[in-house]
Amino acid sequence: MIELRDVHKSFGENHVLRGVNLKVRKGESVVVIGGSGSGKSVLLKHIIGLLKPDRGSVIVGSTDLSQLDEEGLNEIRKRFGMLFQSSALFDSMTVWENVGFGLKRHTRLSDSEIKKIAIQKLGMVGLVGVEDLMPSELSGGMRKRVGLARAIAMEPEILLYDEPTTGLDPIMADAVNDLIIKMRETLHVTSVTITHDMKSAYKIADTIAMLYNGVIVASGPPGEIRNTPDPVVRQFIEGRAEGPIVLEGIIR
């Protein structure tokens, strides 16, 4: 369904991705883990074509994204939904306008029909009676849910989650994990999640892949990753400061 082949990306002197290879099968939930600044977000942005690789290719279905012009990219993006770390709700619009934004742009549905669908999607993520509020009136957890409702509004085949549990309290984080599982079960979507929250990774992943030094250093089912002897992965999943992973700019 999604394949990254030898993807390289630099920003000035900073060589962030150094040959990433990753395969995501249809219906699979892949979680990419890695430290802050490891390039997880950069990787996710390549999958939806927000960034173009300097070298290598990103294949979605049978299409190489680098071969597409802007219109082609926009066509393929209609198959995606993305939940941003900061939710990225449009703050000049009400909640239902946010959720219905894609429908308004890409369908001929009337406003009342769009609002009805938006209310239904909001119901799916556990929000009732918030459709006429502005994003600034919502709590962090509610904003995440509205972001998720917006991501699923166009009934995408692929959902991308950028650190879905970051900034939430543990109970709300677990509720978001449950929502991600629910989306997969009810909508049968393929999903790629990036996170450094291991509890979340174990719960929602079919496959966990670890990004370190710009490459995927380990990949496998949660059980396998949990018991891996690889010292880099072990240090990360156990959350230890001591180990082979060098924390940039920190003297130990």
Binding site: I48, L50, N74, R77, K78, S86, A88, R150, L160
Partner: peptide, 17 residues
């Protein structure tokens, strides 16, 4: 503000130039 809060990226993911 839209740029730093990823709203411009969000527009692109919603297939909007």
């Amino acid at each position: 503000t839209m740029r730093v809060t990823e709203q411009i990226d969000a527009l692109e993911t919603l297939a909007t130039n």
